[in-house]
Design a protein around this nucleic acid. Sequence first.
DNA 1: CAAGATACGGAACACTGTTCCGGATGCCAA
DNA 2: TTGGCATCCGGAACAGTGTTCCGTATCTTG
Lengths: 194, 194
Amino acid sequence: MADIDSGSERPVARKRADARRNEKTLLDAAAAAFVASGVDAPVRDIAARAGVGVGTIYRHFPTRADLIVAVYRHQIEACAEAGPALLADSSTPHAALVQWINLFVDFLVTKHGLAAALQSDDAAFQTLHAHFLDRLVPVCDQLLDAAVAAGEIRPMDAYGLLRGVGNLCIGAGSDPRYDARCLVELLIAGLRLH
Amino acid sequence: MADIDSGSERPVARKRADARRNEKTLLDAAAAAFVASGVDAPVRDIAARAGVGVGTIYRHFPTRADLIVAVYRHQIEACAEAGPALLADSSTPHAALVQWINLFVDFLVTKHGLAAALQSDDAAFQTLHAHFLDRLVPVCDQLLDAAVAAGEIRPMDAYGLLRGVGNLCIGAGSDPRYDARCLVELLIAGLRLH
DNA sequence: CAAGATACGGAACACTGTTCCGGATGCCAA
DNA sequence: TTGGCATCCGGAACAGTGTTCCGTATCTTG
């Protein structure tokens, strides 16, 4: 399905120079808008920041999810790649799992509205959902399997766990009384065999 | 602050008969709309179901939260009252806590979008937030205290727990792969001392 | 440099919530 | 019963979203 030629060599048909420039500008503008107003920042705001028309956004990023994925692609990738590394470096699979989940939580809680968007059943967010899941569920599954094999935790569905952790991150950062990290820890503790 | 004269005697000034009739009609229409489209059902839909103008909704229920609270008031009340009852009837405080949380979860997962609305930081939902918290946090606190006193669980902030459970219920019912009840169980299990 | 391909801008549309006020309606006193 | 007033209703109008569309501008290529 997906090929891996993103941004390397010439993918068959080179885009026009102004188009490539605008895409980059748009990405920066979106990142700034996301920081300022969350991932729900109005399309017109992002367009204004980038100094382009709204049509230009939709040409480059047909859905809001495409834009979000493009903005955070690198961080998602880094999180995914950290999984196997942690598994190799940690003393136990469970420790690796905890650290990896913390990485995921840290990523989510610092992006206003991202956790909520991740759970939205709005059709516009399907791509976002899909990208996170495709990339992170296998990693989580690997960590869980290792911890189960080591007899540290009970078996658990990676999709469900990731989604639960994502849910717990909703609203974190906008309410000092709500500590998402603490609850996620509790959730992982509940996984533990004793 | 809040007095308890809701619907009894004459509260000082009786409303006009048509106003009372409309309020009742509106409540039924809203309940139906919530079932059909979730608590985010468009105002115009609710008005159309009730056969009234949108202005009439806003006169009776200034914010969407007021409408939601009015629709679910009885169920929230029942949940709150079940707390002490469970504590009295159950073999252990922990068992009572688990049963009570299940009650809360069952309530939330059967109302499309309610859990999400509960966490929304939108100003229109403040009343909703406040009502749930005022009514349920003390109950949850009581159950937690009893379980802590019995040495069954570690101390936990009732507000945080309730909010976490609410978060875990977001999206439940619209995705067969996501089992909110299972995750809530895990969370409560993480509370357990061992 | 000309012609065709590509991309841009922003007006226009559809759908939200929300406000506002002229007019209809119920209530009460005479 | 009836008059008059306080109350309430309806829906047009406004404001803020996302999304589409096409005339125009720009780039690329021969």
